[in-house]
Amino acid sequence: MSGKNINLTLKIWRQASPKAVGAFAEYKISISPDASFLEMLDEINDNLEKKNELPIAFESDCREGICGTCGLVINGQPHGPIPKIATCQLHMRNFKDGDTIWIEPFRAKAFPIIKDLVVDRSGFDSILQTGGYVSVNTGGVPDANAIPISKDIASLAFDAAACIGCGACVAACKNASAMLFVSAKVSQYALLPQGQPERYQRVQNMVAKMDELGFGSCTNTYACEAECPKGISVTNIARMNRDYIKASITANPVD
């Protein structure tokens, strides 16, 4: 193990229930620089439980940056100061001895706080239910590569599909807009032949749901791209805008 422990002051958001008034509580900890951010929170919770106090509620699952469950705003930045990683991949070596760290939940009207640092992101699920799929008849297993797709297009679609739906884009956006998430989901289908039949209905349905849920509008600050743990590009937003505008203006729906 490298280095000696660092001493930190943590200001952590505590809120007992969705309707309760929350406030920051201060905790002091001496932690190894090799610990991950979530391991540090685990240690604080161990100490709290030993003292018979309620542990801090926070979410995590895979702890290797692929599930999108963990998500904290650390010193004003979703997933902390290091680009292209999730909170679980952040290590304490990125902080200095004596630092004060502010830990807040993702804040958005569409992401209501459940408890402490845990927010309800089921809004993302509702958006996916309106278009995050392709309707295909099940049947025999199709032959691999029956539909030719160029490597460039496949790579672009894959980059969009890399979105883990963590919600950092909403947390980072000054308007709490979900455009980066929705555009990634729209793009991963819009780019591939399998997504074409429902391409324009999909973008209209998903945008309508996004607006209905109270996410803000995009003002192209690109904070989402800067904070995205998967580096999803804002060119996906441009693609969604293009498809949505085209769908709205040229669609000729059948009654």
Partner: peptide, 22 residues
């Protein structure tokens, strides 16, 4: 847009990190 976008985040962050990403 400004009014609606303000409403989309009723509670502000204690630490504003926007200068680091936009």
């Amino acid at each position: 847009l400004w009014l609606e976008n303000k409403k989309a985040r009723p509670q502000k962050y204690a630490v504003n990190g926007s200068s680091k990403n936009s």
